[in-house]
């Protein structure tokens, strides 16, 4: 609430206040970079990428970095989990900004830079490490509130559970192509009117194809007093076999 801050600052006596109403989305859309905080760089659940050469990276890099030299980034970008927040750095701001654009084109939504790149990090007292570089990306998404894990979901979807049901909120054309055999199908746009078909005394695991519609349905069901959770993963179904990809 930028205007709220402006109003309060004005009350405190600040005379020269401006509001950047279009805010961060407009800044990012213009192709300008965002910068991650030092705390997020050292502790956040991120993929941290050193864009410099292997030699430079070996000599000294930010702890937890994966080394992907700029020239190879385009080829390696697909191995970065799409949902991961990515923080990148180099020894040149231009190189970091170009890399940011490459990653965004590859569909990564959260890409930020290290303020001042490697030099800025060292100057701010950030920790570094040296030795053989790391090239394998290890990243696991942290579950949001209200999510069900793949393991728990599949236990019910593929096995049998007396205390839990699976709700499939995909459209009819999607469910006719295939669905989990234990699932109840109610397309999202009908959930509002057909809640009565669902048990209130059981847990409800909701799924769709990406997790977006499932999340909406689960929230709606929770509002109505149901014990609902959603699967926030990609699902594809064919001939009554569904596969879940993380």
């Amino acid at each position: 609430m930028s205007t709220d801050i402006a109003g309060q600052a004005k009350k405190m006596g600040y005379k020269n206040i401006k509001v950047y109403l279009e805010g961060e989305p407009a800044w990012s859309k213009a192709g300008y970079p965002l910068y991650a905080s030092n705390d997020f760089i050292s502790k956040g659940n991120i993929v941290l990428i050193d864009l410099r050469s292997v030699e430079k990276s070996e000599a000294g890099r930010i702890a937890r970095s994966v080394t992907i030299p700029s020239a190879t980034l385009k080829d390696k970008a697909d191995s970065i989990p799409k949902k991961a927040p990515v923080v990148i750095y180099s020894d040149s701001e231009d190189e970091a900004v170009s890399a940011m654009k490459v990653l965004k084109e590859k569909g990564l939504k959260k890409v930020a830079l290290v303020p001042g790149n490697i030099a800025g990090w060292v100057k701010s007292g950030g920790e570094t490490t040296s030795g053989p570089v790391v090239t394998t990306i290890v990243w696991k998404r942290q579950m949001e509130k209200g999510e069900v894990s793949i393991t728990d979901f599949l236990k019910v979807a593929e096995g049998s559970a007396t205390d839990t049901v699976i709700l499939d909120v995909r459209n009819q054309d999607e469910t006719t192509a295939g669905m989990f055999k234990n699932a109840i199908s109610i397309p999202l746009d009908q959930v509002g009117n057909r809640k009565g078909e669902l048990p209130k005394d059981k847990k409800i695991y909701v799924h769709c194809t990406t997790g977006a519609r499932a999340g909406m349905a689960a929230k709606d069901l929770i509002n109505a007093g149901y014990n609902a959770f959603f699967l926030n993963e990609d699902i594809s179904c064919k001939d009554n076999t569904c596969s879940v990809t993380e």
Binding site: T3, M12, N16, I17, Y20, E24
Partner: peptide, 13 residues
């Protein structure tokens, strides 16, 4: 300084 420029922004218009 109360005379210094302050620019506030958030996540959208």
């Amino acid at each position: 300084s109360k005379d210094e420029l302050v620019v506030a922004f958030c996540g959208g218009p």
